[in-house]
């Protein structure tokens, strides 16, 4: 019992550290990917290939002057970035980072907690995240910040519905809300049972989900809450120093977590093809599975960046049109069809 407790503590710290690490290096990757796509070379001065750039950026943010506007609500002004960061870090708890390792007869699950409403938990926490933006934007007492905050919350509400509907199809298929069980459902190979990744069964759900994920993470082409050309910096216009750093950082953590959730829900999570036919030790398969999961996550982070440097920003009315008139009906239709198909096959 004690060993499992210690293991969980280690896992919590590891997930925390990995989230921060991935966020830091996402900023670096973002600049590199942007550079490569624009025929440039990007940051290459700090360390070999510029690998120390995130450290330099972090140090710079710490050294900057901390400004709290005198007209702002100071408590809420500080609360905003904290809340955003906390919620960003909280979602990593339910994601299954791998199967289980067995040492000395004790099974260690590579998931901090497998609550049976995993997806709902993620949705709930992500929804709280928008309060970080809203509170920060409102407390700045600046019209650009307020507009950014309003946009963020409106966007969040519009896209969360379609996202929820696209998830319900998965829940209907698998009959569970637990992310772990959804992962297990996708584990399979040639040996007797043919289980494919959910994206094979639910391509439309995946499409809707990933579009909504872009909107939820405030990433281009849906980065209207912080759109520089219209709103200076959006909700973080008034923020400086590490408070700004927390916002920017938390956004990259959100991106990492959504990549992890997309991989888990639609791309098999820690499962990889033919994993049960290799005849390897269970522990080795678990480690390979974790590597596979991180490969998928890194691919999706790259995908996020790839889209960002390809597509221009949507106009606000286009964003709302797409959300309410495009994705919502499509997701409901998808839901109905999935229901009909399940009913037909289970009769």
């Amino acid at each position: 019992m004690m060993s499992i407790f210690i293991f969980k503590v280690i896992l919590v710290v590891a997930v925390f550290a990995i989230s921060l690490f991935m966020a830091a290096y996402s900023t670096y990757a973002e600049r590199k990917v942007a550079a490569f796509m624009q025929d440039r070379i990007g940051p290459d001065r700090a360390g070999p290939f510029g690998l120390l750039q995130p450290l330099a950026d972090g140090l710079k943010l710490f050294m900057k002057e901390e400004i709290i506007p005198s007209v702002s609500n100071k408590f809420l002004f500080v609360l905003g970035p904290c809340l955003f960061m906390i919620t960003a870090l909280m979602t990593g708890v339910v994601i299954p980072w791998g199967d289980s390792l067995t040492f000395g007869g004790v099974e260690y699950k590579l998931q901090i907690t497998d609550i049976n409403i995993g997806i709902l938990y993620v949705f709930g926490v992500v929804s709280i995240g928008v309060y970080g933006i809203m509170i920060g934007g409102w407390a700045s007492n600046n019209k650009f910040s307020l507009l950014g905050a309003i946009r963020a919350s409106a966007q969040m509400i519009s896209y969360e519905i379609a996202m929820g509907f696209s998830i319900i199809t998965l829940v209907m298929m698998t009959g569970t809300l637990s992310l772990k069980e959804i992962s297990v459902f996708q584990s399979g190979g040639i040996d007797g049972h043919w289980n494919f990744w959910n994206v094979v069964y639910q391509p439309f759900s995946f499409l809707i989900f990933i579009i909504c994920a872009f909107a939820e993470c405030n990433r281009a082409p849906f980065d209207l809450p912080e759109c520089e050309t219209e709103l200076v910096g959006g909700y973080h216009t008034e923020f400086s120093s590490m408070k700004l750093g927390l916002y920017l950082f938390a956004e990259y953590i959100n991106m990492f977590i959504s990549s992890a959730i997309i991989s888990t829900l639609f791309f098999g999570g820690y499962n990889f093809p033919f994993m049960h036919d290799l005849g390897l030790d269970a522990n080795i398969i678990t480690i390979l599975g974790t590597i596979a999961l991180f490969t998928k996550i890194i691919f999706f982070i790259f995908f996020f960046m790839w889209i960002r440097w390809t597509i221009p920003r949507f106009r606000y009315d286009q964003l709302m049109n797409l959300g309410w008139k495009g994705l919502l009906p499509l997701s409901i239709l998808n839901l109905v069809i999935t229901g009909a198909v399940i009913l037909y096959f289970n009769k």
Partner: peptide, 21 residues
């Protein structure tokens, strides 16, 4: 259109950069 754009940007990833250090 997005697919077309995405193909263009990925092509540019493998082009030589014009930067002179």
């Amino acid at each position: 259109a997005i697919l077309g754009g995405v193909m263009i940007t990925i092509k540019h990833m493998f082009k030589r950069s014009a930067t002179v250090r």
